[in-house]
């Protein structure tokens, strides 16, 4: 019988054969997590399951952009709201989080897990919560809103998520201020290129001389493209798919011209970080080990990312 331990072993044995592309790696992660869900459901020892539900992952997993190691970000939407269901799905959420942790996806520091009542709700309560978040507009919930927008169903009906995301799209059409609030939330990015055109590396610590790809490279692209997707009602999950949709729109053709190739390059670069021992490791690239051409290429990607971010900020905040 499959257990978290056997899944862990299976994962460790097989992951190396899925490292040739980001796509296959992400499909592999999906497979592993679904196995965890199955074990968790079995351990809940309740059949049939009280009602229909959708289990989603979000963050980089939601966007199909996970690296070698990734922490867990996930949530649950279930159909019928009642006390019994609430207790069941929260308990299931706890079981899933525990299982993922055992299998090698560390607990999410921000508590974005199905074990957290904020991320485990009936669809009706999810609708209310999203409305509350959008009306509230506080700094923290703007971040939740963006995280939710990256949600991707791993199990259950995907329509539930589309229905919820449409609420966000519709709301911002009526309330343009929402996009401004989200923009303000993501305004800060870690500067990657110095005033003298140099790549800015970490000054101290074990990553001295490395660049933090997550904060300097991925985030400007991911956040900018997500914001445009919310604005235009693009419900694709991955940044690349979102980019494809957005690039077809006349108003973004020029802005997004090199974005897709840049972003794909970035994903390729991250796939080369194979000696990662923990989640942090997967984000850091050793600049000293790059050839001149590689350095030029990454510099272009970083510069374009910053410029994209600046343009999107100007567009939304104008």
């Amino acid at each position: 019988m499959e257990t978290y331990e056997t899944i862990k072993q299976w994962k460790e044995q097989h992951i190396s054969s899925f490292l040739d592309s980001s796509k296959s790696l992400n499909e592999f992660h999906d497979q592993v997590m679904l196995k965890v869900l199955k074990v968790a459901l079995r351990k809940m020892n309740k059949s049939p399951i009280p009602c229909q539900f959708t289990w989603f992952i979000t963050g980089s997993g939601g966007r199909l952009e996970q690296g070698l190691i990734s922490d867990q970000d996930h949530g649950i939407v279930y159909l019928n709201s009642n006390g019994e269901n609430e207790a069941y799905f929260l308990a299931l959420g706890e079981e899933i989080s525990y299982g993922l942790h055992i299998v090698g996806y560390p607990y999410c520091k921000g508590n974005i897990m199905s074990s957290n009542p904020v991320w485990c709700k009936s669809i009706e309560k999810w609708e209310n919560q999203l409305m509350q978040w959008m009306e509230d507009e506080s700094w923290e919930v703007m971040r939740y809103l963006q995280i939710f927008y990256d949600a991707r169903q791993l199990f259950g009906n995907p329509e539930n998520l589309v229905r919820l995301k449409k609420i966000i799209y519709q709301y911002q059409l009526q309330n343009p201020n929402l996009l401004k609030r989200i923009a303000a939330n993501m305004k800060h990015v870690k500067n990657a290129i110095g005033p003298m055109g140099q790549i800015m590396v970490e000054q101290y610590g074990i990553y001295q001389g490395y660049i933090n790809l997550k904060y300097t490279a991925f985030i400007p692209y991911v956040n900018s493209i997500r914001l445009l997707s919310i604005k235009e009602g693009v419900f694709e999950n991955s940044t690349v798919d979102r980019l494809e949709k957005l690039s077809q729109m006349e108003q973004y053709k020029k802005l997004l011209k090199h974005c897709k190739s840049n972003f794909l390059h970035l994903i390729d670069v991250r796939m080369t970080i194979l000696n990662a021992m923990n989640y942090d490791d997967t984000h850091y690239l050793n600049v000293k080990k790059l050839t001149n051409d590689q350095r030029k290429e990454i510099k272009k990607v970083l510069k374009d990312g910053k410029s994209l971010h600046d343009h999107v900020m100007a567009l939304i905040l104008q």
Partner: peptide
């Protein structure tokens, strides 16, 4: 200093 020669603040 760390073993790999990097320094801490």
């Amino acid at each position: 200093y760390n073993k790999d020669g990097s320094s801490n603040n």
